[in-house]
Simulated scan of single mutants.
Amino acid sequence: MQTQIGARDITLAKARQDASTIFLAKVFHWMAIGLAITGGVALFTAESGLVKPLIASPLFFILVLAELGMVFYLSARIDKLQPGTATGLFVGYSVLNGVTLSTIFLAYTHASIGATFLVTAGMFAAMAVYGMVTKRDLSGMGSFMFMGLIGILLASIVNIFFKSPALYWAISAIGVLVFVGLTAYDVQKIKTIGEEGIMEQGEVAIRKGAIIGALALYLDFINLFLMLLRFFGGSRD
């Protein structure tokens, strides 16, 4: 009897692990699509010469506000959105972010942007693997990293007025640590969602769960990339 119960527990654990792996694959799939769209749009906007007039126009700030609005709306309304709408918002956000991120091509060389992307991908992959395999509960670290994120935002606003180089580099260093930590936390959280049965809730729940998970990891990657670019980016001047 005990052998049968033990075998059933092992089978159940294996089924949960398989479901979690499939769900994570869907999340990473959509994250990769978002990054590809953003990178392609950013490069096109920069190479086409549209980026300079864009920066000089009020449209740039409208696009930034639209990006923020889309992230908050998608995060807050994901349960009530149709899968197609959620996907459209994610793709739209990726496009808008590509347009606004095209400005980095004015400040940094193509080679340093590419090299920083590779460094970011390596760090992100390492922390994603850690988030998947660690037995440690990272929820406490996630809360701590979120507080760090709030601190970064407030310090960045303050530094707009003080323009302190020391504070700028401190924000950048702390930002790298925060987004590295958030990557591990978010991956573990997504893995847990997969283990808790989202794959049994139907295609609608899976699709929406994958989109919101992809958005979280996409934001972790982009912000980590931007923080690292401050250290590794080669100036075009």
Score class of each variant (00 low, 15 high):
A173V: 15
G84L: 06
L177E: 07
T120G: 08
M127Y: 12
A36L: 14
F161G: 04
N97T: 13
V99N: 09
E203Y: 05
A66E: 02
K26A: 06
Q2I: 13
N223E: 11
G34C: 04
Y168G: 02
S172L: 10
V158S: 05
R77E: 14
T103E: 09
D79V: 07
G49R: 07
W30C: 00
A214T: 03
F144L: 15
L68P: 01
D79I: 04
T11S: 15
I190M: 12
I157H: 04
I198Q: 04
Y185E: 08
S112D: 13
M31A: 10
H110R: 15
K189I: 04
L118E: 11
G202Y: 00
I113R: 02
V27N: 03
V95H: 04
V178G: 02
A15L: 09
I160Y: 09
L138N: 03
F105L: 07
R136S: 05
R236V: 05
R136Q: 09
I206A: 00
K189L: 08
D220R: 01
D137P: 06
M123L: 15
L149W: 12
P58Y: 07
V133E: 11
F231I: 09
D186F: 13
A210I: 02
I78V: 14
D137F: 04
R77T: 10
A19C: 08
L138M: 10
I10E: 15
Y130I: 08
G49H: 07
I222T: 10
A184M: 11
T183K: 09
T3R: 14
L81W: 00
K26G: 02
G131A: 06
E67N: 09
N159Q: 08
F23T: 06
Y108P: 08
M70Y: 01
G142L: 05
S112K: 03
T38L: 14
A210F: 04
R230M: 09
S143G: 15
L65M: 15
A125W: 09
M127T: 13
G98W: 02
F72W: 09
G122C: 08
R16T: 03
I78C: 00
D79C: 01
T38Q: 12
S164K: 10
